[in-house]
């Protein structure tokens, strides 16, 4: 399941800790990336084998942390819009509605072409440049409806 590059990364991860179990979060992250944004049961079994854990224990970790998308495929671009206080004060709600209209999906859904998934998330720690969102690894800040249109167009 893991590519050679991923296997090498996992070896590096295991060097950081006195036991293998501590590597579970990193290895889950690597597995999610390898699968293109989500995790399936098979991944948990493989990770359990690598780390000498029970599958149910790997599952427990994956289910606890919100950034692991367990059995929940996401689009090529995962748009995560902050819905917490600082962004809300500066109009995040309208921007979320705007994006729902533009993408023609509701929060939590993926476009039929599997390109965009729209999610709302709690504070991403970019409150001085609110409203903001994260698309895959990158932050987009000081958003307006016009700015969002341009960002989405560039990604389309």
């Amino acid at each position: 399941m893991f590519s050679d590059k991923a296997k090498e990364e996992i070896q590096q991860v295991l060097k950081k800790y006195p036991n293998r179990r501590s590597g579970v979060m990193d290895v889950l992250r690597i597995a999610q990336r390898e699968r293109g944004g989500h995790l399936v049961k098979e991944d948990m079994e493989e990770i359990a084998r690598i780390l000498g854990m029970q599958t149910v224990e790997v599952n427990a970790s994956a289910a606890f942390y919100t950034m692991y998308n367990v059995e929940k495929p996401v689009g090529k671009y995962h748009i995560q819009v902050c819905r917490n206080i600082s962004c809300l004060l500066l109009g995040a709600e309208n921007l979320i509605k705007h994006m729902e209209r533009e993408l023609n999906i509701r929060v939590g859904e993926t476009t039929p072409d599997k390109k965009f998934t729209l999610s709302t998330v709690e504070c991403l720690g970019s409150c001085g440049t609110a409203p903001m969102m994260q698309i895959n690894d990158d932050y987009y800040e000081n958003l307006t409806a016009e700015k969002i249109d341009k960002i989405l167009k560039d990604l389309k």
């Binding site: 950081k16 800790y17 036991n19 179990r21 501590s22 590597g23 579970v24 979060m25 990193d26 889950l28 992250r29 780390l51 854990m53 427990a60 970790s61 606890f64 942390y65 919100t66 950034m67 692991y68 709690e122």
Partner: peptide, 27 residues
């Protein structure tokens, strides 16, 4: 010195939950 990346759990900012998380348990 090593980096341990969290993965979306505010509670891991609580110091003992943070330790649990590094050890590979639910935070």
């Amino acid at each position: 010195m090593y980096i341990h990346r969290g993965f979306g759990a505010y509670i891991c900012g609580e110091e003992t939950a943070l330790l649990e998380s590094i050890e590979g348990y639910r935070g």
